[in-house]
Design a binder for these strands. Structure first.
Length: 601
RNA sequence: GCCCCUGUAGCUCAAUGGAUAGAGCACCGGACUUCUAAUCCGAUGGCUGUGGGUUCGACUCCCACCAGGGGCGCCA
């Protein structure tokens, strides 16, 4: 898939359990092939897909096909089964496995149930919050996300970016990278000037109330309405932009004041979402460096100055000998004012200079794909080798029903504030009926966790390339495959452990026959470390969202089928540890997604 | 015109190139004297947009087409 960058490094192999046993079997199979005069096989292991059983599986179709190419006519599936059969006989029953079978060309190796269960549970409980964490990769990555514009509303369309960016940052970090979470705030540009213009003319002296973001957003939307199609207004706005450009103290003062209001609003939002940043960049800090950089580009012949008739451009296709591929990047307006590109170039450089990054990720919606390729290409032309380590993590946007895109300028938005308030009050209503004995404070905490969890999960459980259609009904639906379901499983596990009212028993080798649902639960738990690596590699929190749901579903099943506290002592001890391991793993999944796992609900 | 994304159950979405394509919602029928029913069990529902190709094997990879969405010089 072209969206994925070529990985110039290797993620550390995940070692959980049975890796040594697997290696030994690989060796034996290779030896078998050698003895039988078969080609050396390339073994790809996967999970046995039958629920209630676990183990590892590989097939011999490739080997049979290879043989067929060298020799005569062979029925591949039959031959694959023949080899699998022979290998199974050859292997006998290796240590650590309870059964080996050959089915339909597959060799299935079933783990020894008690041993595997004990190993998985012990590993989880020993590692705790670090269960699933990858080995340090000695690799530094910056994830830039959120990038809000000051003086504008913060709406549901912006939410996906924050949630995805935060989750990807968590994932990369947990997978073993050193992660720097960066924000890049649009605190200057035409939209800001329009806001200032409207404020000066119609709202002078007003101050924001509690709900800063709404107030700021309203003034902005009004500015758009007032200026649209009015040459007079546009002239005034241009004049104001010019005053800004020469740093007229009066304009700067108002800018600073209103900008601060906006930033306070953002802080509220990020606090509510539980997101933090290690480094915050501002457009205003790279505007002047950007203009200097454009001069340099012109001097070096990379950019062409077409002023005053045209703008300053980098004719990428012309330089690269391409046709309609990279097109033309405009780096400065004809009137000398800055554009996105003017600022993104110096910002990219600054990031690498400040942090000596191995990778720089831009979490930005898919509509800016071409633009970002242009930026990266221009940096490459400037001679920056690291340009190839810039990566655009594109995601699809959040639309309103009828495929209507949210736009601050049109006011066709659902404010984040409204969504969270509505979701929280709905959740509060439910928690009050379900759990009236909780204190008000507890109920509110639960409602907040549930509401935000549901919102976050609905975005993370969808692939990055899929458009999200926002509608109130499904946004406020806490049923089915949703965060509350997962949180509830966590709470149930927690409840059992609390009621056990004892320290966790010591490590146990199960001496009773485990039920299929217990086996499935252990298997899902054991997948977590690999899923972390896979999700990090592909920048897809979706994999975690799926695993978390599967864990919750199987745990609920277990909960119904397998008594814990009432069970006889040997069973009880194992199950208590299993419950603790499930709780830990579900909790780790939720934490990476930025979703709170409440203790009660 | 060039480029990108999407197309799977009525709807919203899953599914390492592998074994019988799975969930949720909706609809129908069941289960609370039990570790929290925000739960569970059962039933219904499919020519994976179409046509080729690669492969032992394709929802998955390649090509063409169809449908929807997005991007392509001074917006962000």
């Amino acid at each position: 898939m072209h969206l994925l960058p070529l990985l110039s490094f290797r993620y550390a192999e995940v070692r959980i359990v049975f890796e040594i046993e697997q290696r030994a079997i690989e060796e034996k199979i290779k030896r078998f092939c050698l003895e039988e005069g078969l080609p050396e096989p390339v073994l790809q292991w996967s999970w046995i897909p039958f629920s209630g059983h676990w183990g590892i599986s590989t097939s011999f179709f490739a080997l049979a096909a290879q043989e067929a190419r060298q020799g005569g006519q062979v029925n591949i599936p039959e031959r694959a089964q023949g080899i699998a059969r022979a290998v199974a006989d050859y292997l006998g029953r290796p240590a650590g496995f309870e059964r080996v079978e050959a089915v339909k060309g597959y060799l299935n190796l079933y783990f020894s149930t008690p041993g595997y269960t004990q190993q998985v549970i012990d590993t989880v409980l020993e590692k705790g919050e670090d269960f699933g964490r990858g080995e340090p990769l000695n690799r530094r990555v910056m994830v830039e996300f959120s990038q809000p514009n000051t003086h504008k509303a913060f709406h549901v369309g912006h939410l996906r970016n924050v949630i995805l960016g935060a989750a990807v940052a968590n994932l990369l970090e947990f997978a073993g990278n050193e992660v720097i979470r960066a924000n890049y705030i649009g605190d200057i540009g035409l939209h800001v000037i329009k806001w200032l213009w409207n404020y000066q003319k119609f709202h002078l002296g007003e101050e924001p109330g509690e709900d800063r973001i709404r107030w700021l957003g309203d003034i902005y939307a009004e500015a758009e309405r007032r200026s649209e199609g009015s040459p007079e207004a546009e002239a005034e706005i241009r004049a104001l932009f010019a005053r800004w450009d020469r740093r007229d103290p009066q304009v700067v003062e108002l800018w600073e004041k209103s900008r601060a209001w906006s930033l306070e609003g953002f802080d509220q939002v990020y606090r509510m979402l539980g997101v933090h940043f290690d480094r915050v960049y501002f457009e205003s800090e790279v505007e002047e460096p950007g203009k200097k950089l454009v001069e340099e580009l012109i001097a070096r012949g990379i950019a062409r100055d077409e002023r005053p008739e045209g703008a300053v451009i980098v004719p990428l296709d012309e330089i690269l000998g391409e046709k309609e591929k990279y097109r033309v990047l405009v780096v400065l307006r004809s009137d000398g004012t800055s554009l996105y590109a003017t600022k993104d170039l110096p910002l990219a450089i600054k990031k690498f200079e400040e942090y000596n990054l191995d990778q720089s990720i831009y979490v930005i919606d898919v509509r800016q794909s071409l633009y970002l390729q242009q930026i990266f290409k221009t940096l490459e032309l400037m001679g920056y080798d690291w340009a190839k380590n810039c990566y655009h993590l594109a995601y699809e946007i959040v639309n309103l029903p009828g495929n209507v895109t949210m736009k601050s300028r049109d006011g066709t938005v659902v404010l984040l504030e409204d969504l969270v308030r509505e979701a929280t009050s709905r959740a509060l209503e439910i928690v009050r009926t379900k759990n009236p004995e909780l204190s008000n404070e507890q109920q509110e905490m639960v409602a907040h966790a549930v509401a935000l969890g549901a919102i976050k999960y609905s975005m993370l459980s969808r692939d990055n390339t899929k458009i999200v259609t926002f509608d109130w009904q499904s946004a406020l639906d806490f049923n089915g495959q949703a965060a509350p379901y997962i949180q509830y499983a966590y709470v149930r596990a927690n409840s059992i452990l609390r009621k056990a009212n004892q320290a966790l028993p010591a490590s146990q080798l199960p001496v009773y026959e485990l039920s299929p649902v217990e086996i499935e639960l252990v298997e899902l738990i054991s997948r977590f470390p690999k899923e972390v690596q896979r999700a990090a590699k592909e920048y897809r929190p979706l994999y975690l969202a799926n695993l978390a749901y599967d864990l919750a579903r199987v745990f609920n099943d277990f909960y119904n089928q397998c008594p814990v506290l009432q069970a006889e002592e040997t069973v009880r001890a194992v199950r208590l540890r299993l419950v603790a391991a499930a709780r830990q793993t579900i909790g780790n999944c939720l934490r990476l997604m930025g979703i709170t796992a409440p203790n009660v609900m």
